[in-house]
Design a protein around this nucleic acid. Structure first.
Lengths: 242, 242
DNA sequence: CGAGCCGTTGAGGGGATTCAAGCTCAGTGG
DNA sequence: CCACTGAGCTTGAATCCCCTCAACGGCTCG
């Protein structure tokens, strides 16, 4: 690890400034690149902002780019042949999404913004080009793949197992991981909770209300809420004991 | 794509013969290697056979090797802090497992043989060494990672969503994908079905019995069964219509 | 042969769904 | 300004699916 700035700050291109100011640059995909590789990339990376429920990409589309999440949450959806839709994973700040594009494969899920999202769009060709000859980048890529795989498996074991209340508590715990230090989390719509945890909106609503009455959760305006982390831990512990 | 044999057949080392005879060599990890890279590897790859319920590796262990499945099925398990265990994914012939070892990370799951399993154990150091300078291998690795990710997400959307009967039908459909042309599938124990689909053994038993009576399934000795693929399709279709 | 595991089936209860009715609140147009 | 509307959330009552508890039969194995 070096203390050298990862992205060069002397470029004239506007994106150079954006990269230099990027809050996640130390953990981002190109964190391993040196100056030699970095001069070329600013002009090809586009910074984008999406509003909640905006689509990043559609399942089945031939992808030409991967995306780094600079800020916000993105959910991955699949709908079965039966028509019902299920959220299979979420990704947050610092995560790389749409990696299947690098393999010239169609996107595997619908990717949709949960909150307002700031993304960097990285063309496939750029990664291909940087990958040749180097071996730090492939390793970095594989690391991200493994992270995604781990998240997907954890989704099965935490959010798709056991009674509804426990699944919701696990979801809150996970959302807390994406929260600021003030414990203000993004709280999904009831319908979205349903799609994440495979339950109806009514059940989701009942459970959220119960947790609110128990003091685990305090609703805040605009799809957000404040968590009592201690109470959440206690509630999760009580689940296990039973 | 070339028609050249992927593994050299003139080596004196016993593993060279095993590799030459390997049924999955065209789809295996080293399928992209040329002769130059192949001479060294035979001596380092170990062929192994495991009986059902034998452990390939344990979650949390510092892994020193990845494995290619030559034959059989392997399941990935996680147990929550509550003590209950959930199967989060299965892998079959041609799949690469334990890839996190390449990143010097502990294994993410318990990996357990479902059927009798034939594996090739590939030391991490060997892959590291072959990766340097080349770029075909990283691509091949990433492809496998993406496959695993896709499988994990499909597990959420197919096997963890909806009523018990539909989940079981989806599981059978998936097992059919690993079956021979005679439609004889490996049928998990009821307890294993429970861990895969998050249901009790009693429910699993009842549903299997029902499908047997409906003619979708015919039990065969030794944890196997014969599927009526047409009846299965019809049953799945009926699920959607309702 | 008894012990133990696995699978099956039954009866009863509970948790989640279904169906249904209000509620709040932001946006719209009279 | 305010009724009107529709989307999202909440709550209630009835139903049903699945779990729990329980008993029993087949099978392997010591």
């Amino acid at each position: 690890m070096h203390a050298i700035p990862i992205y060069r700050q002397d470029g004239a291109h506007p994106q150079a400034h954006a990269c230099a100011a990027c809050e996640v640059r130390s953990t981002a995909l190109f964190g391993v690149l040196d100056d030699a590789g970095l001069d070329r990339i600013h002009t090809q990376i586009a910074s984008m902002t999406l509003e909640p429920d905006a689509v990043v990409y559609d399942r089945g589309t031939a992808g030409l780019a991967v995306f780094t999440i600079r800020e916000g949450l993105v959910r991955f959806e699949r709908s079965s042949e039966h028509g019902d839709r299920r959220i299979v994973r979420i990704a947050g700040r610092g995560d790389l999404i749409g990696q299947e594009a690098l393999l010239h494969r169609p996107y595997a899920d619908d990717a949709v913004a949960c909150t307002q999202v700031h993304l960097c769009r990285i063309p496939r060709a750029l990664v291909d080009q940087l990958t040749l000859g180097r071996d730090a980048l492939p390793r970095e890529l594989m690391l991200r793949w493994q992270r995604a795989l781990d998240a997907a498996e954890a989704w099965v074991s935490d959010l798709s197992t056991g009674p509804a209340r426990r699944r919701l508590l696990h979801l809150l715990q996970r959302l807390a991981g994406h929260a600021g230090p003030d414990s203000t989390i993004w709280l999904p719509r009831r319908e979205e909770i349903g799609a994440m945890l495979d339950m109806t909106v009514e059940t989701a609503s009942r459970l959220v209300s119960t947790l609110r009455r128990e003091g685990v959760l305090t609703l805040a305006p605009g799809r957000s809420a404040v968590l009592d982390r201690a109470a959440l831990r206690k509630a999760l512990l009580a689940e296990g004991a039973a």
